[in-house]
Write a protein that binds this DNA or RNA. Structure first.
Lengths: 200, 200, 200, 200
DNA sequence: GATGAATGAGGCTTCATTCAT
DNA sequence: TATGAATGAAGCCTCATTCAT
């Protein structure tokens, strides 16, 4: 279902979509180019017309995912000014928990996947992932800061650090949820973290 | 046919050690058997005498790492009864932060690495990793519980959940530290988490 | 549809020039069409508008080089009637030695390159190269014949044969010069050959 | 037909033999690995067990050819002390002419082929080829020197230089012979060169 | 316990060429 | 004239594994 502003060629877009899908479930190394091509319905040589390498394609996919995440998940929720900061954060986290559950705990966060697998060896990946997490954390820090000012969150931990711990916590929780095959873990951790962020 | 207590069958042990090293830095898929053999100084055919497959070797490596972690890192620190629960936890976490820093943020936690890479596709891995994390979490829960009873930690979040969040947080923090190439992240998050765990 | 005298159809000419350059340095097989296109700044589809195949382009390049060689190098020098035959030959050979040196012994003679690489498999190449060398040899034979008549060269070897040996010698010397990376070889062989061609 | 001292494994030797054959007729780039494997009857993965790359194999083939050339062609003839230097040289050159003719002018000298194709890009090739030609030239220089001392050859051109010209001449002649598809060229040039080397 | 040799499937990438516009 | 997109075959190489000794 191409969006209205879909200006890119069909094949290119299909390749990126297939890559996002496979990168999330299989990781970088295990995701063979053939599987991407099959999923996208694109021929091998045509792939190499659009992208200069597997790595290049993955970078494009990372960019696309990053865009999607911020413009369709994070920003929309965090900017609902009719909700209190705490409610906004809760809504965001609930959305994530629901996604995990609907995917049967099978996909992880592709940014985490790529980070653990390749960040030491493909600098370009590391840099983008680093930027992604920085922006992500910044978004979280802003709601938390608002919440602190409104007295919804405890004020003895800086918003920036709290956001950093939250982000780490989310990433780690996704891994645990997958490993234990228990979607409940996600919900538990979210609830517990919010409690910790609140003065008793 | 090595006996159960055969601690060092030479080649076998060298293979496991090399695997631990490479699994931590390169991940499962990128770690070719040849690189293991080269690092261990063992011939290919000899490898297949000791292990029936790459997967088999990795399972042995996982077990060895798990053993090492509990008997050499976690248990020794958490059972220092002369320290208060909070001090014990702090000591443990500091040890981890130091390790990260000494490795220049280059290796991640191999359990997390394997989890993100393979847990969907190699059930045997998933199960061991799950058990590892459960035991790890259990250890953490015990100190926290003690701390709660002594009033060192807030009591409105169950020790079990707090431990689960802490574990997730640690795993996620390791990833962030690697991605940002900034060892400080680890220290910041540890400090922030301990603050959150304490009533303001 | 370029006319016969179309000296510069823009793209077409650029393609030929790039091909000459690459053919001299990389050879036929290693010279990918993409590298030609990049060097010429011409699009792939445009290339196939002008030429029906890589082979076709190379034939055009061969013709262009052959023309250039005779009209700009061989004929001008060999027809300087104010110089004695021997002086003319010396001037020609010196020019070649200088070229080799200025290119740091890096390019060979593209006719030799194509001959060794493709002559068995692309008959069209073989034929043009054969014609090129025949005309080349004929030119050399004429000066030598003149020189024989003037007593500058020994008369017990026919001009035709002497020219054939000289031509072979030049081609072989270019190869040796390249292989040894020693421009001096070219000068030495030229001098030695001229000595052999003279009665002691 | 393995020689008596054939100590190397079957596959390895077959690969080298097939490579010599193909390298002589097709050149380096055009000689696909698959064609080598087919000719040798060896599987691809077994090939990569014995050699680390196509380049590596070709280097081994070059060494083998070099050995063969000196121990079976050059040295045996040039050391027939019952023949005069001139006769020895004539015998050697005749043998080469006969080889060319028997191969219908289809193969060139693989050293020349590789030199023209790859010497700029594969330094290891260039170095071996350079050594090969140096040794070759040295052999020729020795007979010529003997011939000079016996008065069979003219003495106003040093043996070293005469050998260098002869070597170049031979290499160039092989190319011409191939290009013109006329085995006679080889014989003509040999005869003419010997004449030039003799005082009129 | 250990060896060298062999295997087949698959890895990523490039080739020269053609299509529709 | 020129374009961007697509094609299928082939390129070199590596994978985890097995065989016979």
């Amino acid at each position: 279902m191409p969006t209205t502003t879909d200006t890119t060629s069909g094949s290119r877009q299909k390749l990126i979509e297939a890559t996002i899908e496979l990168m999330s479930s299989r990781g970088f190394e295990a995701m063979g180019i053939n599987s991407i091509l099959e999923a996208a319905g694109v021929s091998k040589s045509n792939f190499y017309y659009h992208f200069k390498s597997k790595e290049d394609l993955c970078l494009a996919a990372l960019d696309a995912m990053s865009d999607m995440f911020f413009t369709q998940m994070l920003d929309p929720v965090l900017s609902i000014k009719t909700l209190s900061p705490r409610k906004r954060l809760e809504k965001l986290l609930k959305g994530m928990a629901d996604m995990m559950e609907s995917e049967c705990c099978n996909k992880g966060c592709p940014f985490v996947n790529l980070a653990t697998e390749t960040s030491d060896f493909i600098p370009a990946f590391r840099e983008r992932i680093s930027q992604y997490f920085e922006r992500y954390q910044q978004g979280l820090a802003e709601v938390i800061q608002e919440g602190i000012q409104l007295g919804e969150f405890r004020s003895d931990v800086s918003a920036k650090l709290a956001a950093q711990v939250l982000l780490a916590s989310l990433n780690g929780t996704i891994v645990l949820t997958k490993v234990h095959k228990r979607p409940q873990v996600m919900k538990e951790n979210i609830k517990a973290f919010l409690a910790l962020l609140t003065a008793p």
